[in-house]
């Protein structure tokens, strides 16, 4: 699979850009968090395309963003559980 470039993304509509990025990010995220990969990818796609491109090339950046996303997700689920318990 050829690397995704800024020019490839620039020629596509925003929604399509995110989809292209998601297709590349998902397998990398799935390797870290198989069960939460779909949710984490969805969260990370809210980030700017330029930053996502950087994350594709930098496993460290991706890893730290994934950790951040998991923390946010777990906090979100905890809040939901607390609201349901009321």
């Amino acid at each position: 699979q050829e690397p995704l470039t800024v020019s490839m993304l620039a020629s596509a509509p925003l929604q399509e850009q995110k989809h292209m990025l998601g297709e590349r990010l998902f397998p990398l995220i799935e390797a870290i968090h198989p069960t939460l990969a779909a949710k984490i990818t969805g969260m990370l796609l809210e980030i700017d395309a330029s930053e996502l491109l950087h994350m594709l090339e930098s496993p460290e950046s991706l890893g730290s963003k994934v950790d951040e996303a998991v923390a946010v997700l777990q906090a979100h689920y905890a809040e939901e559980a607390a609201q349901k318990a009321k």
Partner: peptide
């Protein structure tokens, strides 16, 4: 919106066109 955050975040699945937040809040 009106409590639809229960489905947040939207899920990305390979091969499925990405619609972002529209996936969960049509």
């Amino acid at each position: 919106s009106n409590g639809s955050s229960i489905n947040w975040p939207p899920e990305f699945h390979p091969g499925v066109p990405w619609k972002g937040l529209q996936n969960i809040d049509p």
